[in-house]
Design a protein around this nucleic acid. Sequence first.
DNA 1: CTAATTAATGACCAGCGCTGTCATTTCCAT
DNA 2: ATGGAAATGACAGCGCTGGTCATTAATTAG
Lengths: 342, 342
Amino acid sequence: MKVTINDVARHAGVSIKTVSRVMNNEPSVRKDTCDKVMAAINELQYQPNAAARNLASSRSFSIGYIYDNPNAYYVIDMQRGLLDACRKHGYELLIHPTNAKSPDIVQEVIDLVQQSRLAGLVLTPPFSEMPHIAAALESIGVHFVRIISGSTPSPKLSNCVLVDDFTAAFKITTHLLELGHTDIAFLCGDEEHSSSGERLAGYQAALAKRNIAPNPKFIVPGSYSFESGVQGAKQLMALAKKPSAIFACNDEIAAGALFSARLMNIAIPQQLAIAGFENSPFSRQTWPPLTTAHQPNVTIAQQAAELLFRHTKPNASKTLSDKQPVFIPELVVRESTAVSES
Amino acid sequence: MKVTINDVARHAGVSIKTVSRVMNNEPSVRKDTCDKVMAAINELQYQPNAAARNLASSRSFSIGYIYDNPNAYYVIDMQRGLLDACRKHGYELLIHPTNAKSPDIVQEVIDLVQQSRLAGLVLTPPFSEMPHIAAALESIGVHFVRIISGSTPSPKLSNCVLVDDFTAAFKITTHLLELGHTDIAFLCGDEEHSSSGERLAGYQAALAKRNIAPNPKFIVPGSYSFESGVQGAKQLMALAKKPSAIFACNDEIAAGALFSARLMNIAIPQQLAIAGFENSPFSRQTWPPLTTAHQPNVTIAQQAAELLFRHTKPNASKTLSDKQPVFIPELVVRESTAVSES
DNA sequence: CTAATTAATGACCAGCGCTGTCATTTCCAT
DNA sequence: ATGGAAATGACAGCGCTGGTCATTAATTAG
C-alpha cells in the first residue's frame, strides 16, 4: 500500500540516505548505484511523501500562480502550461486569484508565499509589471518568473519570459495597411498592462514606416474588456472622419467593437475591418471571425515554469541554455479583415 | 520570522498540547482557554506548518478538483468558488485538468488522490456522472462531492450538489412558447453529460404541457461546443419545416447557432429565436445577446466544497443543516428571443 | 460547605518519512 | 602499499499529532 524510502533502500540494498540522494539527484552517487535505486523505485512504484520532504528540507515542492485576469481563456491556458511543467518536475501548482488593485496586494503575495512555503512564483500581467511586487519577492528571497511584454532579452530581465507584443502588433497593423487601409484606429487595453503600450507602439511604428501621420483621435484609451470595445467603437464611429479599420488590443475588445458595429449597422469587413489580439477561442466564434495574433499561452506558461525550476532546483543541470525565451505572436488572418472592397 | 506552536503555547500560557487541541478543534477545551489561544495565534500571526501537520496526522489539508471541460468560464468559476471555501477553512486546492475519456482515468484519479494524499475531491460533469469513478473513490475511502444534474434530494445522493436543469430548461422552453413559438428545436450537448438529457427532458415536458407534439427532427444530437451549434443550426435550417426557435443546451452551442444563422442570413430574433443555457460571460457578448438560464457556478462550487469539508473535518459542527443544496438556474431574457414579430 | 465526581489541561514520549551533517568506508591513482 | 578523493552510511531532528497518564480545576451532590 504505502511504500516508504525504507522499502526502496532495502530492496536496492543501499542505505536510506543513498536513495534520498538519488531522489534529489545529488552528485556523488555512482552510476550503477543510481541505477539499482532507480530500478527499485520503479519496481515498488515508490512515491516520495511530499509532506515529509517539505518538513525535513524546509523547502516545498509547489509553485504559485497569482492571477487577476478577467480573461478566463488566458488563465486556463496558463494553468495548463504551468501544470504540464509541474507534473514533469514533480511539483504542485497553487493557484491564487486575487485583486491586483487591492492596496495590500504586496502583503497578500508575501503571505501566500510564506504560508504555503512556495518554492517559486509565476507572475503574469499585471503582477509581473508591478515593481514593488518584484522587489518584495526579492527581499524575501523567493524565486519568481515574470511573463512580460518585451522583445530584447537583457540580463536585467533574466527571470522573464518575453512576449514580443510590439512586433506582433506591427505585423497586424501592416496587414491592415496592406489591405489598403490608412485610417486605422487603435483600441487600447488597460494602461497598467504594458502589453497595451507595446501593442500601441507597434501599431504606431507600422504607420510611421508608411509615413502615415498618426491621428490622435484614432487612439482610444480603454481596458481589456468587451464593454470597452463596445464603447470604443461607438466613439470612433461618431467621429467626423471615421476609421476604416480598427485594431483592438485584444480579442475581447475586438468582439465588443464587432458587437458595437453591428448595433450601428456597419458591415464587417466591408465598411470596417476589425482585428484583435491573442487568438483566444472566441476570436473564432464571433461573426465574422476575427483576424488576430496568436499568442501560444500554454507554451509560454510551460517555458516560464521551466525557467523557474531551473532557478529553484539546486542540482539541476545548468547546461540547459539559460537564454530567455522570446515569443512573437503570429498573425492569423480571418474574415473580419477580408480584402477591403473600397 | 518563523512562529512555531511552541511560541504560541508560551505566549498563551498553556501547553503545546492545548494549542494543538484548539487547532484541531478537539472537544474538551474550555471556552476561555480557547480564546486565549486564539488571541495568541492572532497576535503572533501563527501559521501552522502544513507539512508537519500532514506528516504527523497523515491527513492532508488539500482537496482536489478534477476537470475536463472545454468551457473555460465554467472552470474558472468553479475554481473561484472552491478556493473561497478552501481559504475559509484553511485548505488548499489542487487542480487537475485531464482527459475524461482516457481509458485509465480511474487509475489516474486514484493515483492523484494517493500521491497528493487528498482529503477530498470535488467532481463536476462528466466525472461526477461516472459510476466507476465514484465506486473507486469509495473503495479507497476518500470523501468526495459531486455536482450533478437533478431536482430531488435523496439519501443516495447525500454527497451531491444538485442543479435542477430540468426545471430551468422547462422555464426557458416555456418562455419561448409564451413568445408564440411552437416549432422549437433543441440542440443537445454531449450525451454523456446528464445535464443534456435533463435539459432535453425539461424542454419536452414544457412542450407536452401545451400539448405540442414533439417533432423528432427538431432534436439534434451534438456536443457542448461552438462547432456543434454551427452544424446543428445548419441542419435545422435545411429542413423543409424549419423551427422558429432554437433552444441550445448551453451558451456556446447557442453562439454557434447564432453564427450559423448569420452565415445563412437569418435574422435573429425576427426569423429565428435562439436561447442558450448557463449565462456565461459570452452570452452577453454575442449579437444579439442571448437569452439563457443563469447558473450560479461560483456559489455552487462553494456549497460543494462546504459539503465536502463537513464530511472531511472530523470535529466539525454537525449542527449545520445537512440537507442537499439544489440550485435552479434562473431565466435571463435578452434580445436573442425578443418578442416574435410574426 | 465539603466530598465525590467530572471535565480540562499538562507532561511526556514516540514517530510520521524524509534530509542535513558528519563520520566512515570504498575506490582509484600513484 | 598509501594518501586522498569519492561514495556511502549512521544518526539526529524538521514541527507537529496521537496516545497515555497524571494533575489540576470546575461542577455537582449530599
